[in-house]
Nucleic acid binder design. Structure first.
Length: 485
DNA sequence: ATGTAC
């Protein structure tokens, strides 16, 4: 049997792209890493594998903890991690969801081709930068009062539709139709709501961006056709999350859960994995608050979509409907959701924690919107500003081996601090312009932190997903121009 | 990721 030695952790190769850490002291289940050997070496370079092992100590965890090919270390649990935990007898852990609740990505289609936008990059970027608030701190497209924030938390994209920022088809092309029914705004602290009220419709900082892209490769013509994608088409990717509101929700519940469930915590190897037992008041409250933050993030991306449509209509002199600016799909990258999965031949309700992982349901699952139920859901995987991104289709194997999940991006290779040592924003921007990618950011430091060289190889990440059959390649897109915090 | 800090 082939093994891989990572410090004091030994992984056994189960088969191509599947590595397992067998259970030992305190691990309730094994841990699995889905990766090529090269990606595994990169994953083994930080604390990801130890964090993955730690997660297997959580009560009620089923089958195995998973690290996707884009995994890297995060708060308590790797970014790129999936943990499915019994929703009746297990627990829920905010650290296994992440600070940026429903950080996620949506793709907006157009009927423009690369020739239509070539030469207009600067004009587009300047107009988008003016229309979409970026960077840290406050300032959003909508200035909400307390009632607005409550309505957003409760009703998600349906609120945006009522206010004229969304159309019906936007809801039909969003995970959960843009509304998480389990949202409980009363479980969100006033402090979190106050942080959110002037951030409604704002990109934020870090790896968040709005990017205009062109389709360069079509791998599956039938599915591309079902998704309305074709070679040379211009599409727009919007990547952002729940800003200060989601961050505050995570922080509030981590502190409360650490205190109220210190007994459970004392049996876990890392304080950052603090978890609330299923059925406890805090488990219910966190779940309701997290679902509300999910709605907030969807509205955030919807408001940015609205602005983007307005900008394109101005620049190209046609209504956005005539430019074909429909939503392909909106996927969450940081969530925990109650889902029913087969465990040892029995249907079980689980809290599926996906932190830096994407739901990748194949054809037939009832949660997939009817527009895609016969094909499988679109899975959107942003790469870096230089490398480009992918649209995949939820794979047949995902329900068997990954609780209906796949990777979520390229995955970092180094910390932000290290990135700023290795790169300078201005140089990165110049290099990108040499590749005909026009980037504008609020801060040079952000460009350095997000330089293409700080990311793993997105082609390799996606090829692992495709080879395992958990998310299948549909199209590849290349960046044209990009705005960031 | 984040009013970049318990």
């Amino acid at each position: 049997m082939t093994t891989f030695e990572a410090g004091n952790i030994t992984l056994h190769k189960v088969r191509e792209h599947v590595w397992e850490i067998p259970p030992e002291d305190g691990m309730r289940v094994p841990a699995r890493v889905f990766a090529s050997e090269r990606l595994l070496e990169e994953i083994a370079d930080d604390k990801s594998l130890q964090q993955l092992k730690n997660t297997t100590h959580l009560p009620g965890i089923e089958k195995y903890a998973i690290c996707m090919p884009d995994g890297h270390q995060g708060y308590g649990f790797p970014v790129g991690g999936v943990a499915a935990i019994d929703a009746e007898n297990g627990c829920i852990s905010p650290g296994a969801v992440g600070y940026d609740i429903n950080c996620g990505v949506r793709m907006v289609k157009t009927n423009l081709t690369y020739d239509d936008v070539s030469g207009m990059e600067e004009e587009l970027v300047e107009a988008l930068f003016d229309a979409v608030p970026t960077g840290l701190g406050g300032g959003g497209i909508v200035q909400g009062d307390r009632d607005t924030v409550d309505a957003v938390l409760e009703r998600g994209v349906d609120w945006a539709r009522e206010e004229g920022y969304a159309v019906k088809s936007d809801l039909e092309h969003c995970e959960d139709e843009g509304v998480r029914p389990d949202a409980d705004p009363s479980a969100v602290s006033q402090k979190a709501k106050d942080r959110g009220r002037n951030q409604l419709g704002s990109l934020g900082s870090g790896n968040h961006f709005l990017e205009v892209q062109r389709v360069t490769d079509v791998f599956d013509a039938d599915i591309a056709d079902a998704y309305g994608l074709e070679a040379d088409q211009i599409v727009i990717l919007i990547h952002c999350g729940s800003r200060g509101l989601g961050h505050q929700v995570c922080n509030d519940y981590l502190r409360d859960i650490e205190q109220a469930h210190s007994g459970l915590l004392s049996k876990l190897p890392d304080k950052e994995l603090a978890a609330a037992p299923a059925g406890s008041q805090l488990a219910e409250d966190y779940y309701g608050a997290m679902c509300a933050a999910i709605n907030f993030a969807w509205v955030n991306r919807q408001l940015i979509t609205h602005q983007t449509r307005t900008v394109f209509a101005d620049v190209f002199g046609e209504p956005w409907e005539d430019l074909g600016m429909e939503l392909l799909y909106d996927v969450a990258h940081n969530i925990a959701k109650k889902e029913v999965h087969d465990v040892d031949g029995e249907d079980k309700e689980l809290y599926v924690h996906r932190k830096g992982a994407t739901r990748a349901f194949p054809a037939g699952r009832p949660e997939v919107p009817s527009a895609y139920r016969d094909v499988g859901q679109p899975v959107i995987i942003p790469g870096s500003m230089g490398a480009g991104s992918y649209v995949l289709c939820g794979g047949e194997q995902s329900l068997d081996i990954s609780f209906g999940s796949t990777a979520h991006g390229a995955g970092r290779l180094m910390s932000r601090t290290q990135a700023k040592d290795e790169f300078w924003g201005g140089d990165v921007q110049d290099d990108l312009r040499g590749q005909e990618v026009y980037v504008k950011a609020e801060s040079g430091a952000t460009i350095a932190e997000e330089a293409p060289g700080v990311y793993k190889d997105v082609d390799e990440v996606v090829s692992v997903s495709d080879a395992l059959g958990i998310g299948d390649k549909v199209v590849r897109v290349a960046p044209v121009c990009n705005i960031k915090g």
